[in-house]
Computed example of a mutant assay.
Amino acid sequence: MRAPLPPASKEKRLMTNAKTIRLVMPQWQGGNNPAYKFGAELLAWLAPETSSPVIHIPVAAADHSLINENGIMGRQQIVNQLHGAQAAIKQHLPDKIVVLGGDCLVDLAPFAWLSERYNDNFGILWLDAHPDVMSPAQFSHSHAHVLGALMGHGDSDLTSVVSTPVAGNRVMIAGINNPNQYEKEFIAAQGINTCSPADVKAGFSTIREWINREGITCLAIHFDLDVLNYKNFRSVLFANPSANESDYDGIGKGQLEISEVVTLIKQVNELTTIVGIGIAEHLPWDAINLKTMLENLPLLNGK
């Protein structure tokens, strides 16, 4: 285990020459939705160029349906890919990690590493309409298990990569909307901090107070794009043009705007050191449909 960094007074100076890596992990099995694979690949193409190492985590092809393996859809593929990400991180020993996914579970190995790396200085800002604290007992799609696993709760195949579980008081879920009863009870029992979309829109004070109160000098940010207002940002699950309006009834939908999230992250960056950022759940429906169209046109498809 690598030793934690010294307190905040030396943090910024020591981070000047920090080693950063970028993980591209087009995992789709956690959400049981092959569209996440293309979404991650397009996200990686859109991202600014970097001089840091870029590591592509191999992901099994989306060429067949998944089966429920002891409570988790596609368990073996999920576990293999999780261990692949863990191995890549241990090979590079980074100080900071950027993750481009894929479903939300892509942040499990990177954030587990950062929690071990920074230990008592570490916290997680979870920008998501959903808390992702369920287990196979509640839901078989493991992208909804990731934050719970980072806290040491849930299926042992997921928690096995978490050597330093994150305490609830060092987690802030921002943008959460309409959690179910199990999620509410878990959040309350674990002492997790939450910030509604209205709170985020009202300003930075709740999150600033949390960072100061907990002394968080090293922060990882999980940015699930579904925290965004799907009526204005259409590349998320809830904007699927093939879905019926009733398909997502009862499920929390994002209410934040891109500008509000960017402002929040910039404010956080002034107050603490961001050591990780993961962007997940990109579903660019128009691009996906256009890609499918091109694959079916004569001459373009080689026929």
Rank of each mutant, 00 (worst) to 15 (best):
L82F: 11
L82N: 06
H83M: 15
H83R: 13
G84C: 10
G84N: 14
G84L: 15
A85V: 09
A87M: 07
A87I: 10
A87R: 12
A88W: 07
A88V: 09
A88K: 10
A88N: 08
A88P: 12
I89A: 00
K90E: 15
K90L: 14
Q91S: 12
Q91V: 14
Q91K: 15
Q91A: 15
Q91W: 00
Q91M: 11
Q91D: 14
Q91Y: 07
H92S: 08
P94Q: 11
D95E: 13
K96Q: 15
I97Q: 04
I97P: 12
I97V: 14
I97W: 04
I97Y: 03
V98Y: 00
V98I: 14
V98F: 01
V98T: 14
V99W: 01
V99I: 15
V99T: 15
V99P: 00
L100F: 08
L100A: 05
L100S: 05
L100V: 14
G101D: 10
G101N: 09
G101S: 15
G101L: 07
G102C: 07
G102K: 07
G102L: 08
D103Q: 06
D103T: 13
D103V: 09
C104P: 06
C104Y: 05
L105W: 06
L105E: 03
L105A: 08
L105Y: 01
L105M: 10
V106W: 01
V106N: 05
V106A: 04
V106L: 04
D107W: 01
D107K: 00
D107M: 11
L108K: 03
L108E: 09
L108D: 10
A109S: 13
A109P: 12
A109D: 07
A109M: 06
P110H: 03
P110Q: 03
P110Y: 00
F111G: 03
F111K: 07
A112R: 10
A112K: 10
W113A: 06
L114Q: 09
L114K: 07
L114S: 09
L114D: 11
S115R: 11
S115L: 07
S115H: 10
E116V: 12
R117C: 12
R117A: 08
Y118I: 13
Y118G: 09
N119I: 09
N119M: 14
N119A: 15
D120P: 11
D120W: 10
N121A: 11
F122S: 01
F122V: 10
F122Y: 15
G123K: 04
G123N: 11
I124C: 02
I124S: 05
I124W: 08
I124D: 02
I124L: 14
L125D: 06
L125R: 07
L125G: 05
W126L: 03
L127C: 08
L127P: 09
D128H: 03
D128F: 00
A129F: 01
A129L: 03
H130K: 08
H130C: 02
H130P: 02
H130V: 06
P131T: 00
P131Q: 01
P131V: 00
D132K: 02
D132W: 02
